[in-house]
Design a protein around this nucleic acid. Sequence first.
DNA 1: CTGGGGTATCGACAGCCGTCAATGTCCCAC
DNA 2: GTGGGACATTGACGGCTGTCGATACCCCAG
Lengths: 111, 111
Amino acid sequence: MLELVDVGCSPAALSDAMSAETATELARTLKALADPARLRVLSLVAGNDGREVCACDLTDPLGLSQPTVSHHLKVLVDAGFLQRDKRGVWAYYSLVPGALERVTDALPGGR
Amino acid sequence: MLELVDVGCSPAALSDAMSAETATELARTLKALADPARLRVLSLVAGNDGREVCACDLTDPLGLSQPTVSHHLKVLVDAGFLQRDKRGVWAYYSLVPGALERVTDALPGGR
DNA sequence: CTGGGGTATCGACAGCCGTCAATGTCCCAC
DNA sequence: GTGGGACATTGACGGCTGTCGATACCCCAG
């Protein structure tokens, strides 16, 4: 007999996947990045060489209403990408150092 | 008088943001990554040291139905992260080299 | 050719998300 | 204290998205 069947598909031959919890966590962080408006916010803040950016500076270049900008800022703060510093009437935002690097390192194949 | 008003907020002092088109494009790519199931798929494929992974190997570790897995694979292929090689009845998937690096480089502050 | 099995597609449905107008909150100027 | 302005929150709405069952496609074995 000796049926050396070449299956062409060897199930269960996979090394362990990223755990479901890790994947969910990372996905939540990536969702915070996966929006044009938020990417532009980060770009604006990052483009200012670490200087803080006032919320009032953002609604014009983004072309969005003030509540919408505020919403996006909150998402980025909650995700750990931005930090808020409210001084008096104004709110200043700046990058959290290393936040983006931490995400790219957590990606599959990310070192 | 000499009112040296310190405004505390200097609008329009921002360098140019990422263009709306670039942001939309990058956001679309990131959306493809921002899902637990898809991250685990990439992790499974990447964890196999470049060897191809058969679609039939994926539905079990993911705990999802076959159509759903097929859907996620299509999203990852369309986004340029995976390439499909259908040989006979089976479909083999492998990483597109450099796809992930290209995304991380496009991120704000992503040099 | 016929049957069987691996994949892809379709249709439907629930839940999430981005957006805005309206409103609330809080701090400063007067 | 009173008014105004900057920012946050709420509520509502349309659109997108992940999921599944059902079904179609397609290749190989016999």
